[in-house]
Every structure is written in C-alpha cells, then in structure tokens.
Simulated scan of single mutants.
Amino acid sequence: MDWVPIEQVQYWTTDKKFGVKLNPKALRELLRHAQSAGTLETGGIAMGRYSECHTYATVDLFTGPPPDSQHGPMTFLRGTSGLQRLVAKLWRSERRYYLGEWHYHPHASAQPSGTDLSQMKTIANDEKYATPEPLLFIVGGDPNSEWELRVYLAFRNRDQLEPMNQRTSG
C-alpha cells in the first residue's frame, strides 16, 4: 500500500446532505483484501454506524469475501455464507449496521459496471437488507501502488447511482 491516510477520509453527496466517513484502519483493511485478490475481483460488505441525525455514516469495517463467493478477472459474485450471522453479531454487540457493498476492479477503473448498478438497485429495493440507500465502494487500479476509491449512493426506485465526492478531514 503506497499511501493510506492517517486521518479520516470523507465522501459527500453533491448537495452535501449525506456523507460517509472512512475509518483509516477500515480503509487499510479494504486495500489488504484487494491486494490478496491479485488479478481477480473480490469484495464484501461495509459495516458501521450512522450519526445521530443520520447526515453521515462512519464505516469501521470492510469484510472480506464470504467463502462461497465467486471471483474472476472481470467478475465478482459475493457469496452469503456466514454473513447473516456476522451482521447479527455486530448489531447485537456493537450496534453496527450493514451500510452497503464493496468490491475491487483489478488494474481497472473504479467506475461501476452495469452489473454493479443492477445489484445495487436490487439491494436498495429489497426489504431484507433494511437499507433503502446502500453505499457502493469500488477500489480500482493497483492496491500496491496507484489505486483509487470511488463511493456511490444507491436509492430505492432510482436507475442511477449517485457519485459521492471525496474530501479529507483535517
């Protein structure tokens, strides 16, 4: 990992009504997951907390891929094995919420694909996820040197993802 910030990194919607803050430790773990995948796509879920007034979420955990996930050079299908148990445990013990999905595009852009859009629309509209506005985190490039992270917000009953703009806290 060439550069990982020590301070918190933030992403906000264009209208600045909702943001997401990334714990530096969680960001380092996300990049470690991407590094270990090599040239294959990988991913997992994001867990964290919402602010009291629900104007931002703080991500403090990016899980690795469940063991039943399918990885390819240009495809990733996140499995479900053990996730429900993990989410329930983190809710009971630490009041962490499922915030959304993350995945890695090896040596490629962090732009969402048509599949990414379709999956996020499904999650946003599925009551089982209990999150009408899930986040999507995409790592692109090379997690060992030059990488980028882009964050998107999905909305129930919308056909597009809203890109969030990065800003570093001071």
Score class of each variant (00 low, 15 high):
Leu22Arg: 05
Leu22His: 08
Leu22Glu: 01
Leu22Asp: 01
Asn23Met: 07
Pro24Asp: 06
Pro24Val: 03
Lys25Asp: 15
Lys25Thr: 12
Ala26Glu: 02
Arg28Tyr: 13
Glu29Trp: 03
Glu29Ala: 13
Leu30Lys: 03
Leu30Asn: 05
His33Phe: 13
Ala34Gln: 09
Gln35Gly: 10
Ala37Lys: 05
Ala37Phe: 04
Gly38Val: 06
Gly38Lys: 07
Thr39Ile: 12
Leu40Thr: 05
Glu41Pro: 01
Glu41Ser: 09
Gly43Ser: 09
Ile45Asn: 11
Ile45Thr: 10
Ala46Pro: 10
Ala46Arg: 03
Met47Gly: 06
Gly48Ser: 02
Gly48Lys: 06
Arg49Ala: 08
Tyr50His: 15
Tyr50Gly: 04
Tyr50Cys: 02
Ser51His: 07
Glu52Trp: 08
Glu52Phe: 08
Glu52Tyr: 06
Cys53Ala: 15
Cys53Pro: 04
His54Ile: 08
His54Thr: 08
Ala57Phe: 08
Ala57Asn: 04
Thr58Gly: 04
Asp60Gly: 04
Asp60Tyr: 09
Asp60His: 02
Asp60Cys: 03
Leu61Ile: 01
Phe62Gln: 00
Phe62Asn: 01
Gly64His: 09
Gly64Val: 05
Pro66Asp: 04
Pro67Tyr: 07
Asp68Pro: 05
His71Ala: 06
His71Pro: 01
Pro73Val: 12
Pro73Glu: 15
Pro73Cys: 12
Pro73Met: 14
Thr75Ser: 15
Thr75Asn: 15
Phe76Ile: 07
Leu77Val: 09
Ser81Glu: 15
Gly82Thr: 07
Leu83Ser: 06
Leu83Gly: 06
Gln84Thr: 08
Arg85Gly: 06
Leu86Gly: 01
Val87Asn: 01
Ala88Pro: 02
Ala88Thr: 06
Lys89Asn: 12
Lys89Phe: 12
Leu90Asp: 07
Trp91Ser: 03
Arg92Trp: 12
Arg92His: 14
Ser93Arg: 12
Ser93Tyr: 11
Ser93Trp: 13
Glu94Ala: 09
Tyr97Met: 09
Tyr97Gly: 06
Tyr97Thr: 06
Tyr98Met: 01
Tyr98His: 07
Leu99Ser: 06
Gly100Glu: 03
Trp102Gly: 02
